[in-house]
Amino acid sequence: MKLFRLSVISSLLCAACFGGFLFWTSQQVQQIESKVKNERRDIASVSEHIRMLKAEWDYLNAPERLEKLASQYLGMVPSAPKNLSTDFTPIPEELPSMEDASALTASGAIEDDSPQLTDLLPELASMQGGQAKQ
């Protein structure tokens, strides 16, 4: 009775290979599982943090607080219905880019008579003054 027949050796080898592979897989699974567990804990902790930040965000954005800050630091008052416009037709779809605009102005193709910010400042100041009086 030959002990070391090819079939026996090959099946033993095969079994050893499978055994080794199984061991490797199970180790991998364990490693990944512990990794997943850590990740989950991190997710839970991060989502807990997000919950807290969300609560804080909505707390800080409470309308009463915003209104108080806006009136205290920006002098804003609740807007009246007549101040609200939903007609956007006076606003052009797209403005020319800065280069195009300056090139056009330089070439004299269009005349730049739009008010400069410096011209507007007194106007703005008077507007703010008027609002403060209200």
Partner: peptide, 12 residues
């Protein structure tokens, strides 16, 4: 009502 208009974007 006046304030609701501006919050809800209802034009006069």
């Amino acid at each position: 009502i006046s304030n609701m208009g501006s919050v809800l974007g209802m034009p006069a």
